[in-house]
Design a protein around this nucleic acid. Structure first.
Lengths: 240, 240
DNA sequence: CGCCGACGTTGACCTAGATCAACGCGAACA
DNA sequence: TGTTCGCGTTGATCTAGGTCAACGTCGGCG
């Protein structure tokens, strides 16, 4: 039996391909193509039917919606092991762009939909993933509608900190200390939180002054106590 | 062959039970129970596993999330033919409450999940419904994060107007004129839009002054030109 | 090497929307 | 029939966060 590339995949245990039978995995493996994309590359644009779906191997992808006059809102962030693309119902009403350099495991649209049709267990896995995305979206609605600027920024830092810790940056000595690189620029952070860049910058400076974080350059954040930071965020654990 | 209650159902053609085989419909029919709920009744609370799922036959159900200090955000509105309850992954992180008097077609949780497991086509239907909900949630994220108070209120009015028109209140003489009852109080509107009741009230008064709407009592709205109102909303068609 | 443009920070000021407060209206009720 | 209470409206004032502007840093490039 041939070895499958999937077997050495970094996100194997968490992505949509986890819990598949050998047979299913083989079929998925056969249509999978690796693709590296640089930060800033648009993966698909508003209302243009995406040519492929993808599991994210590394990096971060942002989903953006915008108003006719240019106002923007990031409506989703996808981290490694998450799935990009809207199966079944086709075109999405948002655009997807690599926020950082990213590595993707892509699947041709029609081929993937074909496999989905034939393998309910994979479809179920996709369904679960969508339910998680819906939960995250609703959590974010609460943030956008009701949280203060400080709570918003803290919530985002906690979200990213949890993701990067989960990706193996845990320090057993100091389980509450996290150091990570922000996958987003200040203006992207603003677009995710419904704020302006100036407000984001001021809140970060305020957190720095309160020793809730320290910055090593504008992109690298050190959180001495994630618990203390989370206290500023009013966040539940529930985020994906 | 016995007649099924479903066959006279008002939302038959649009709810999750549309496009089912006779066999599937029979099974669903067998576990369906009618339930009338008064406005204000809590259908299930935060983190409490809901005992049943339901198709909404009439009325409106709101999904609410709240912060520890009491700030609230409505994260979803369900109109007739839509489905209430999170299958598969169990407990939700929000609570559901009847916003108006409502009539539900309920399904026991475990029985429904059983049928789901055995009938991929129904599961697929649920999946599609979830994708639509995700789209709506993201549309609303754009509203919460980036729209002005006036745009928010206009967007909500357009959303409700479209739903009530779809429910058969279309006037062929004046296709652009709509009259409907608001399913939400001022404070619920505020919680859906991320505003305060005062701001909602002021925006409605402003629309009245601009003849974009007129009010027959606080709950009944007449929109002389939906197109003109939609112009204030910066909304796409995309809302569910 | 010096210039330029993208990005981030900080300060001064402004405004959309929040907060606080008064009032009106109709339904429930003694 | 008057009282009360929930709901909605409107006005006066306040403030969180937006806007405008200046400035610093860094990396690419002629």
């Amino acid at each position: 039996m041939a070895r499958l590339a999937c077997e050495t995949c970094a996100v194997r245990s968490k992505a949509i391909c986890s819990e598949l039978t050998r047979d299913e995995l083989t079929k998925i493996n056969a249509i999978a193509h690796f693709r590296a994309v640089p930060a800033g590359e648009v993966l698909f644009a508003d209302d243009e039917p995406p040519p492929y779906f993808a599991s994210i191997l590394s990096g971060v992808v942002k989903l953006t919606k915008s108003l006719p006059d240019g106002r923007q809102q990031i409506v989703g962030l996808l981290f490694p092991s998450q799935f990009l693309g809207k199966t079944i119902t086709g075109r999405a009403s948002y655009s997807a762009e690599a926020a950082t350099n990213a590595r993707l495991c892509t699947f041709n649209r029609d081929q993937f939909n074909g496999i989905l049709r034939a393998h309910p267990s994979l479809e179920k896995r996709m369904f679960e993933h969508t339910l998680d995305e819906l939960d995250s979206a609703r959590e974010w609605m609460l943030l956008l509608g009701r949280k203060t600027a400080a709570e918003k920024v803290a919530s985002l830092l906690v979200l990213i900190a949890r993701h990067s810790r989960q990706l193996g940056c845990g320090d057993p000595e100091h389980p509450d200390r996290v150091r990570f690189e922000l996958p987003l620029s200040r203006s992207e952070i603003a677009d995710y939180l419904g704020l302006t860049i100036e407000t984001v910058s001021r809140q970060l400076s305020r957190f720095k002054a309160k020793n809730l974080i320290s910055l090593e350059g504008p992109r690298v954040v050190v959180v001495p106590s994630l618990e203390r930071l989370a206290g500023e965020a009013e966040t539940d654990e529930a985020c994906v």
